[in-house]
Design a protein around this nucleic acid. Structure first.
Lengths: 230, 230
DNA sequence: TAGATTGTTAATCGATTAACAATC
DNA sequence: TAGATTGTTAATCGATTAACAATC
């Protein structure tokens, strides 16, 4: 029992015309690398096709891996030619979810929040940050990038009215969990957490945490090992 | 042939009194989680010991995994008791490399650079940012956190004199590679790259890149799947 | 001592890589 | 057609998990 389940049937093959398999974090990361490589490096010459071997060499990934990843998002290559670059880009873009624009809000308009808003590179990937909230009276009304900072009290209503599904949390760690609870209560389905706390949310809600300490551990470890090697 | 090589001998068991195995990124990440859990959550009650099962439950990691990770950094538990919390924290702290303070410089004093300097949480992990550089005359002389912004021309000499081994790159993507080359030329051994470019460096130099797009892909993918599920 | 927990070996699982027939 | 490249199956590798004797 159980042994007879057909794995493939999990991703039902035809759903309208779109094909939306659940992709693991690892696959998403690789797809993103392919996408950046294809949109950035070929921009100069705009080569019409690319082979898995070419990408493999440039990114130091196995060519079979690439063909598998492409197959997973429904891409088919051409015999002796390779893959059409524009088609690959479109397919990756869509399966990463960037083709379907979505709105997000920023919570915590401190230095980091301001830096993220000023960066502005989100639009390229479908995200539009439509409001910023803070509880500091001095910051309220301030203009940060495209947003005017609003008071936290207005947050809940805003999320509900606009049906916001993403919140970017750039708050001090002591208030993050409380805000996360409120956001989820108002309907938020994903939190991009830049505060150094582990958030607890109901299952089904995605938390993506960017902890500075993870990067630092890799760096510190490398430096220490290198030093001890002499 | 080759089959006889003893894996264990790679990490030579005694080197002075310290024990510095090469740790994979995955292990580093887990160790960091354990560390944060032990230093943050037990701070309130300061329990003297902890079992692998307790950590496992709190962090949703397999208990055997934890014992293996601990063994990899030379930790020994006690029979029917578990592990001494302070000893575990010290061992993780040391094997991540945080026990050996190191200096870094920040290159590119824009919004993000300012945010990182203002954050100030680096000292906790052994990193001291001792200077900031920028090529914008308007920014030079400005005070950001603990640093006065210096011109890029002074960067090379500073790195050489102070023997700086880490640079944090928060520059626009078009200048990042050039700066990375210069930094490596001056002796930098690790680059923490916050600019959205893939850097090419000589082997032996570590590049840790924090690409915003990786996080976004996970979020966008989740939101899109969820929406299509109804 | 009895019982809980470690340390370690063996089994499982999943992800990566190799091989190669099918295809253009 | 001949030859390069795909798509896919099989083999390998490494990481995770289970099992259990050794230990306190």
């Amino acid at each position: 029992m159980g042994a007879n389940i057909n794995r493939e049937s999990v991703l039902d093959p035809v759903r309208g015309e779109e094909f939306l398999p659940q992709l693991s974090r690892r696959v998403l990361e690789r797809l993103m690398r392919y996408y950046r490589f294809l949109t950035e490096s070929t921009a100069k010459e705009s080569i019409p096709t690319v082979t898995s071997a070419q990408i493999a060499q440039a990114l130091d990934v196995d060519a079979t891996q690439i063909r598998k990843d492409f197959a997973a998002i429904g891409l088919q290559g051409m015999g002796r030619v390779g893959f059409e670059v524009p088609a690959v880009c479109r397919a990756i873009f869509a399966s990463l979810g960037f083709d379907q624009p979505y709105e997000g809000i920023l919570v915590g308009a401190g230095h980091l929040g301001a830096a993220l808003l000023a960066y502005g590179g989100f639009a390229k990937y479908g995200l539009q940050v439509v409001a910023a909230f803070d509880n500091d009276p001095d910051r309220i009304g301030e203009q940060i990038g495209p947003c005017t900072v609003k008071p936290d009290e207005d947050m809940r209503a805003f999320v509900e009215q606009r049906q916001i599904r993403l919140a970017i949390l750039t708050t001090p760690m002591d208030v993050s969990q409380g805000l996360a609870d409120e956001l989820v209560g108002a309907g938020v389905r994903a939190i991009w957490n830049f505060s150094p706390t582990q958030l607890v949310v109901p299952s089904g809600v995605l938390v993506r945490s960017e902890h500075i300490s993870v990067g630092l551990s890799e760096i510190a470890h490398h430096l220490k090992r290198e030093k001890s090697d002499r």
